[in-house]
Computed example of a mutant assay.
Amino acid sequence: MTESPAPATIDPTQRLLAAAGPVFAERGFDRATVREIANVADVNVAAVSYYFGDKMGLYRAVITAIREKRERAYPTPEVGKQTPQQDLERLIRTLLSRMLAADETGWEAMLMMREMQTPTPAFEGMIHGYFQPLYEALCKTIESLLPPLDSKSAWQTSALVPQMALGVVGQCLHYRIGRPVMAHLISPKLIQTHYGLDSLCNQITASTLAACGDLTVIDQYKLLFPSPLNEPHDVSCQQ
């Protein structure tokens, strides 16, 4: 997976970032070496400490670059200017888009997944800078969709809202990491026609709205999805 050295005409910091990403993704932070990264970048080993302080500084810069790239492509929507139902759909679409987005080489998604599975000191910054704004907007929107609770039951909202928000995140994440499983459980035709971004966004939005007490999941799905549910379609599982 290690890429070819970056052209010598590119700024050394950019060459180091371009070289470090695939190495960190393939080997993990602990097993990746500064020497290997410097060799790929075609710079002196001392350049890492000069430009980034140390290996962790370089690693943080790589994570930040990935985060900022995804944020530019799929910025966190501002909530409160549309209906809560519309806000929820936009938030879920953004979350799904970020998770399903494919980089050209594949190492970006691999590195982000590795960081979530085996956190480093960069993990906290990644959560607060990348996930927290979207998570907080999701919590705010879900809370506005839930029916009013009396004062004796209001305490439940403090637990219920985060659980529902994380449930949405979990559904979106599954469609990123569960693709190999889906290929064995679901027919290729069904995956092709009903597992794209729009279909998944509609399904997760409908399920969440139904969980908030806003109609049933079937009613929500009929409103969100352009094709009536009673149209003939392939619902067979993979054999």
Rank of each mutant, 00 (worst) to 15 (best):
K189F: 03
L229W: 13
G170A: 08
A20K: 02
T76F: 06
D87F: 09
G125T: 04
T205P: 15
I10V: 06
Q82T: 01
Q14I: 12
D234H: 11
P148F: 03
A6Q: 15
V169C: 07
T33N: 10
L166F: 09
D42M: 11
V169S: 03
L224N: 05
D54F: 05
F52N: 09
C139H: 13
H194L: 07
K55W: 01
A25H: 05
Q163F: 06
L197N: 00
T216C: 15
A206W: 02
E104S: 12
Q132A: 03
D150K: 15
G213Q: 07
A122L: 03
V79R: 13
P162I: 04
A38R: 13
L16V: 14
I177S: 08
C237P: 07
C201I: 00
K189H: 04
N44F: 15
L91H: 15
T64E: 09
Y135A: 06
R67S: 15
V62G: 00
I204L: 10
D42Y: 14
S187A: 13
R114Y: 00
G125W: 11
G57Y: 04
D219P: 06
Q163H: 14
D54N: 09
S4V: 11
R98V: 02
T83K: 09
L173E: 02
K189S: 15
Q220R: 04
R90I: 13
G53V: 02
I37W: 01
V40T: 06
S187N: 02
P180F: 01
I177N: 00
W155V: 14
L223A: 02
R90Y: 11
M164T: 08
